[in-house]
Design a protein around this nucleic acid. Structure first.
Lengths: 346, 346
DNA sequence: TGAGGGCTCTGCAACGATGCAGACATAGTG
DNA sequence: CACTATGTCTGCATCGTTGCAGAGCCCTCA
């Protein structure tokens, strides 16, 4: 079962273990003759270094973990892809784990028997666990947080400017002349920090136009899936004065909302305009295509990995709140027209 | 930086290293008094076991790797989710890696310096690399293949019955009275085995009805993304006699094709009916919702993990070709009506 | 009373690799 | 020729943990 070790190769080539190691790693100078002999033995036995042993000796594993709520949520899948790519560029591999947004599962990560110690660092996109808890558990492993707003500055944190993004999305709808703009996705409780930031951006946009917010148009949702988006939209349509536009806190909610609108026989954007957030690929191909706020995912991933590498390297600079660019992408769901770009987006 | 080790705890509690280890693992009987003393020391130092060392000693890592072409392709993301869940149930964590369908990247996995040795087993969904190569590289790590058809029986392999699935999808279209049924996604070359199986199912369905296949209706695509689906559909619409139905080899192709149809001002399914394959969540919410072949992903994941665990455990039973159930799910894109199920699917 | 048997607890060796210091042979230098 | 410098190669210790064998100790029972 177990493969040959350095010892086996050494015996076969009649050299010391250390020399074989040197050949494998190209370290110390080795005479051509000996190198050839060792190489032959390596090939014959098809030696593969035991990375676990190497890791133990070197005190690092070359692995980081990425923890997201749900991997099959497109935003996280797309983010995971970028993280894996960014990490690979730096010689790291990524273990992906999902918590299902379950606080228990998130806390497990910090527990005594967690596998966290196997990794050189953690990228965490927490849903339920608070920064306070994270800090209290005082993991020894460097951590960088993604997306979730954590205000107490205990950890490095990479995200877009949620307030500004929400403000721009809402302003876009207002600029189209819509006057009853709904918001889907508020989470007015402790762990809904990101959602609250977006709500506050939504309010700011109204305030800047001197408009009142009709509180009934703000629909909270416990989660950010299509199902909740559809349900929230149905609720909004049942109002005496239904909205003429809706800003959804992510694209899945928006897609669910659009589905509900279509079912109700309403036209998008003529009757109701829709904006999402995340710019998942699906929104480019939906009917109609979805106007959205696009966070720079590549940049998020790259930055997060960079900062994590720095921490792993031992740089003890104070935890930073890092903002990553975003931009509004206008598509059919608000203007009814495709942008100038080609008919079939990439 | 590095946390306390068993030695540190032992020194503090004034016991042997071995005893601390016993307390941590609950192994040998330890007197209550000593246990308490050791536990106190553990708590004070906030000891965390070094899993790398433990792995080295025990010869296993408790990790398996899942290698897919692209994590942000919904099918793979959904599959990854199930694999992670299934593996966790068995005490394993999953490292997810993606190859971008790049043969080079896939081959890297088998190379001398690959990290594959760090894992107890590999779940591989290869795109470019052939079974022949896989076998030649003779990795020492147990491997289970997912999805791709490998006929030479060198490895365990878990997949649906692609021929039957494609036949059923096509038969469904024919049973609706469609007579010019196109196929999008053929790959008539060495590494397109799965696609070829589907084409053969498509042909079988025609043959059983005594119908001729118009070869111009079979459109190959190098990849299985929305973009290719849209392009292929446009190509089909340009034919003198365009199709009245299309079977796409996965859901993304189908979604792309639907987008092209909508753009061309055609109605689905009235003018052209569409069937996909994979049952990704997006297809439930598209407009119209997508008829598709649903592979039992949970079952695929569970079976694959089980078989892999068996191999890891040392069971040397011969490589098996394992078929997992699938079923046709009829939605609006072929019948124009939602099935009896609730308006908003889960 | 003394051999035998549990119960606790300990120390040594080992997993497979690398860091380090030094051995040995050869070459270069005055 | 003696002495240092250089280039190769080796052995030992070590990373943090667990497997194994056994040392004490107390208790039991013939």
């Amino acid at each position: 079962m177990a493969g040959p070790t350095l010892r086996d190769v050494a015996k076969r080539a009649n050299v010391s273990i250390r020399t074989v190691s040197n050949v494998v790693n190209g370290y110390a100078p080795v005479s051509d003759e000996l190198r050839a002999r060792v190489q032959a033995a390596l090939d014959e036995l098809d030696y593969r270094p035991n990375l676990i042993a190497r890791n133990l000796k070197q005190g690092r594993s070359g692995m980081i973990a990425l923890v997201v709520p749900e991997l099959d949520v497109p935003y996280f899948a797309e983010l995971a892809r970028e993280v894996i790519t960014a990490a690979r560029a730096r010689g790291y591999v990524v273990m992906v784990d999902q918590t299902d947004g379950d606080g228990e599962r998130e806390r497990e990560l910090l527990g005594r028997d967690s596998r966290a110690t196997m990794f050189d660092g953690l990228l965490l996109s927490p849903l339920s666990v608070s920064a306070e808890e994270l800090r209290a558990r005082g993991n020894r492993v460097p951590i960088v947080l993604l997306g979730e707003h954590i205000f107490n500055g205990s950890f490095h944190h990479v995200a877009i400017d949620n307030v500004a993004a929400a403000r721009e999305a809402t302003a876009h709808l207002l600029s189209l002349g819509r006057r009853r703009v709904a918001a889907i996705g508020d989470q007015p409780y402790a762990t809904g920090e990101t959602a609250q930031l977006r709500t506050s951006g939504y309010r700011q946009a109204h305030a800047r136009e001197g408009l009142e917010v009709d509180e009934r148009l703000i629909v909270p949702t416990p989660r950010f899936h299509r199902r909740q988006g559809a349900a929230a939209m149905e609720q909004l349509l049942a109002l005496p004065e239904p909205p003429d536009a809706v800003f959804c806190y992510n694209d899945l909610l928006a897609l669910g909302a659009m589905r509900a609108l279509t079912r109700a026989g309403l036209r998008i954007p003529d009757d109701v305009a829709v904006v999402g957030m995340d710019d998942i690929e699906e929104g480019q191909y939906s009917t109609p295509s979805l106007t959205t706020i696009a966070p720079d995912k590549k940049e998020i991933a790259r930055t997060a990995v960079d900062v994590l590498m720095e921490s792993i390297g031992g740089a003890a600079r104070p935890p930073a709140e890092i903002m990553v660019p975003h931009r509004l992408i206008v598509r059919e769901s608000t203007t009814g027209q495709v942008p100038a770009s080609p008919a079939i987006p990439s």
